[in-house]
Amino acid sequence: NITNLCPFDEVFNATRFASVYAWNRKRISNCVADYSVLYNFAPFFAFKCYGVSPTKLNDLCFTNVYADSFVIRGNEVSQIAPGQTGNIADYNYKLPDDFTGCVIAWNSNKLDSKVGGNYNYLYRLFRKSNLKPFERDISTEIYQAGNKPCNGVAGFNCYFPLRSYGFRPTYGVGHQPYRVVVLSFELLHAPATVCGPKKST
């Protein structure tokens, strides 16, 4: 009989979020998941679920829940969905086509923008091939755009693969920082350890 609540607040209220190319993952297990707390949290810009209804989450049990978190621009949030393409979905964070879970995003301009620009948040701009679902690539190898080998030196046709967002408070909404948490639900042939409040007695 599990009684402790799942530590969703640790994920959602973290002081610093990860850059999207180096997205953070927390495994959540052996706890009671009260999703209504999240669902009623006012400032969400997006709360979209795939393969599961957000209002039914509290009735369900899962083997594991993974909480992935990172920061992207407002106009990139739409790429955090199954079957998407674009710089983020291709080179930074890719969801599987059969994704079961929820994508939760909110504007973090007050936290993550600075006058003069916040350059701490990076994304991958160049990559030889697209990421596989949930693949994480933190390499900083110089990207070779031409035929000539770069030998690890940036220059003509040789690019550092990461780019900084440089968030400023005055940017338009599409270019403002958004914090994103992706909850993915794993249902294995194993005992369920993460259940909603109704199922955990």
Rank of each mutant, 00 (worst) to 15 (best):
I2G: 14
T3M: 07
N4Y: 08
L5Y: 11
F8D: 02
F8C: 02
D9F: 11
D9R: 11
V11M: 05
N13T: 04
N13S: 04
A14G: 05
A14S: 08
A14K: 09
R16E: 14
S19N: 09
V20K: 02
Y21L: 03
N24W: 00
R25E: 03
I28T: 03
N30A: 06
C31T: 06
A33S: 08
A33Q: 07
Y35C: 06
S36H: 08
S36R: 12
L38S: 02
P43S: 07
P43I: 03
F47P: 04
K48P: 01
Y50S: 01
V52W: 03
V52N: 02
S53M: 09
S53V: 09
L57Q: 03
L57D: 04
N58T: 08
C61Y: 07
T63D: 11
T63E: 11
N64K: 10
V65S: 04
V65A: 08
Y66H: 07
D68T: 01
S69V: 02
F70Y: 01
V71H: 00
V71R: 01
V71Y: 01
G74C: 04
N75L: 07
E76Q: 11
V77N: 03
S78G: 11
I80D: 03
I80Q: 02
A81N: 02
Q84N: 05
T85H: 14
I88S: 03
A89Y: 01
A89P: 08
D90L: 07
Y91I: 05
N92W: 02
N92V: 02
Y93K: 02
K94E: 01
D97E: 11
D98L: 05
D98Q: 08
F99S: 00
G101V: 00
C102S: 00
A105F: 06
A105M: 06
N109G: 07
N109M: 08
K110F: 07
L111Y: 12
L111G: 07
S113D: 05
S113Y: 04
S113L: 04
K114H: 12
N118P: 07
N118D: 12
Y121V: 06
Y121T: 05
Y121L: 13
L122Q: 15
L125Y: 14
L125P: 15
R127Y: 03
K128T: 12
S129W: 07
N130I: 13
P133T: 04
F134Q: 09
D137L: 00
I138A: 12
I138G: 08
I138L: 13
S139E: 10
I142K: 07
Y143S: 08
Q144P: 11
G146L: 05
C150G: 05
C150T: 06
N151P: 10
G152R: 11
V153R: 15
A154F: 10
G155M: 08
N157E: 14
N157P: 07
L162M: 08
R163M: 11
R163A: 13
Y165V: 03
G166H: 12
F167K: 03
F167P: 05
P169H: 09
Y171S: 15
Y171A: 15
G172S: 15
V173P: 14
H175S: 13
P177K: 02
Y178M: 12
V181W: 02
V181I: 05
V182S: 00
S184G: 11
F185I: 05
L188S: 15
L188Y: 14
H189P: 14
H189W: 07
H189A: 14
A190K: 14
A192W: 09
V194C: 10
V194I: 10
P197K: 15
